[in-house]
Design a protein around this nucleic acid. Structure first.
Lengths: 293, 293
DNA sequence: CAGATTGATGCTTTCAAGGCATCAGTATAG
DNA sequence: CTATACTGATGCCTTGAAAGCATCAATCTG
């Protein structure tokens, strides 16, 4: 059995007339007659009653017609759906992002732009750190992610540069007697510092310490946090100072104030990273949003 | 697009391997490769990603696979259903019957037998008179009916003889002083009679009057009822006597007694009638039940 | 009764599916 | 590190089935 048989069957059934159906199908009448006979032979049943003049659907044919129309409609929908998935119009896109980067700027803007351009794609957002994202992207658990990239990318991953963020000094509010004014690193000698674990972002960690050293500061690290949020909680608790992403200004924790650091020029390179063989068509769409921003 | 494309696609998708699929399909590997390519060309999308070694479903391919498996399953069900309809195992059978004939004997027995042999056929029963049934059968509103046949059948209708029923005298209880004993027609001269309308069953009506005349009775008809139930209601009300189907003994109305009529030998020929081109396969099943009784 | 219209059938053609041989690329075993 | 095996793709040829043409048989219509 082939779709041809079913197409011819539906045409004949709807016209109740072989010749009319054959014209609609743009084939000769004998061809249609034969295909209908073949279909009947294969099913082993009569789909049409042969009247002295003309034909008419049998009971079985009526049932078959109802079912087959639904089947053909479903087939059409299936093709349509596959094409829309392939164009990235429907489906699912799993994107990771560093939480602070999602508070303002290109990351949330891109999410909005994507939602407008592909409203039927389920956008699954996973806020998590850079190393986590890279692992998940490589494992195929994420289609892409917004990260701060210091280390070179693993092979297979491609990146889109989106700009750079800076760093700020975070201090407990009650330590900040003087009004908001930039500080210098060597003013901070002897202060107690909170850092993140080195093995979380080794390259960034080393970059930070090197920059401090160049400005004559070897920070006295009294505690380490799992991530920046944890570090800021410790600052909020009055444990010490910390150097953090400047995006934290958009959602300052309680009991914490931020100061620019005059002599520390560290840039956090925000990138969108994805597997080079972009397997998810919706990803193309997101890349387009990023490039046309 | 033909079913071949879809069958090959599903095979390749489930094996994630062209050669394995080609073996399952009993065709050569190049044939499968080509059909997959043709399908992709026709849909205008990539269903598979070509890896350096082997292939893998693309996102669109995954969506297509899910949909197409359902489509193919539905197609199988459709064929199955059409075949079962054609064998009369499922579907609908609309049968008429004269109510009194349905109270006992072959008519209800056949209904039970049919229900056992084709439990999934919806049996739609319509209790109504012989002329009504014949009209509905000819109009295609009924597939067949149990009738009492006096007039010759219209063309296109076939009949199965099922036996004969007799007639009884029905009288109001308070008129029946003597115990149940057969009566003779000429004992009833001068009695008031209730008949049915002649145009309802002309042949039966005439047969009845002729038989009465032969026994020396010209019944004094005081009222006519639409059908036998109406006639019996009038008897029950004490309006007069009536000659009715002997099946009424199985559900005697209140205030009515029945007597056999010694010198009236009228036989009511019970027949199953259907259109000669038995268009409903379930009807075959019912005919089989009637013939194997 | 002539002509039109129905679907079926015999014969021929044609086009596409299938098979074979082979290629290019990569993984694997020795 | 090479030989081999295995992947899917491609070129070429064969063949089978679908389509077309002409026609038939039956029936309806004017």
């Amino acid at each position: 059995m082939e779709l041809r048989h079913l197409r011819y069957f539906l045409a004949v059934a709807s016209h109740q007339n072989v010749r009319a159906a054959s014209e609609e199908l743009h084939v000769s009448q004998p061809a249609v007659s034969r295909q209908i006979q073949d279909l009947e032979d294969e099913l082993g049943i009569q789909l049409f009653e042969r009247l002295p003049r003309g034909i008419r659907l049998s009971r079985a044919g009526e049932a078959f017609r109802e079912d087959i129309s639904r089947v053909m409609a479903a087939l059409g929908v299936a093709c349509e759906r596959a094409q829309r998935v392939s164009r990235g119009e429907i489906g699912e896109l799993r994107i990771g992002y560093v939480e602070v980067a999602g508070w303002e700027g290109i990351v949330p803007d891109t999410f909005h732009a994507f939602r407008e351009s592909a409203p039927e794609v389920r956008l699954e957002l996973t806020p998590t750190g850079t190393p986590d994202q890279l692992a998940m992207i490589r494992a195929g658990m994420l289609d892409g992610g917004f990260i701060y990239q210091f280390d070179p990318l693993p092979p297979n991953l491609a990146a889109l540069h989106l700009g750079e963020h800076g760093v700020l000094l975070a201090m407990p509010s009650r330590w900040a007697q003087r009004p908001d004014r930039p500080v210098k690193l060597n003013d901070l000698t002897g202060e107690r510092f909170i850092f993140f674990h080195r093995n979380a972002y080794p390259a960034y960690y080393d970059l930070l310490l090197t920059a401090c050293a160049l400005s004559g500061l070897v920070p006295h690290i009294v505690q380490e946090g799992q991530n920046e949020a944890a570090v800021l909680s410790l600052v909020s608790a009055g444990i010490g100072l910390a150097i953090v992403n400047d995006r934290n200004r958009y959602r300052p924790p309680a009991q914490v104030e931020f100061r620019e650091i005059e002599d520390l020029n560290i840039r956090l390179p925000l990138r969108f990273v994805y597997r080079h063989e972009r397997t998810n068509p919706a990803l193309q769409n997101m890349l387009a949003c990023l490039e046309n921003r």
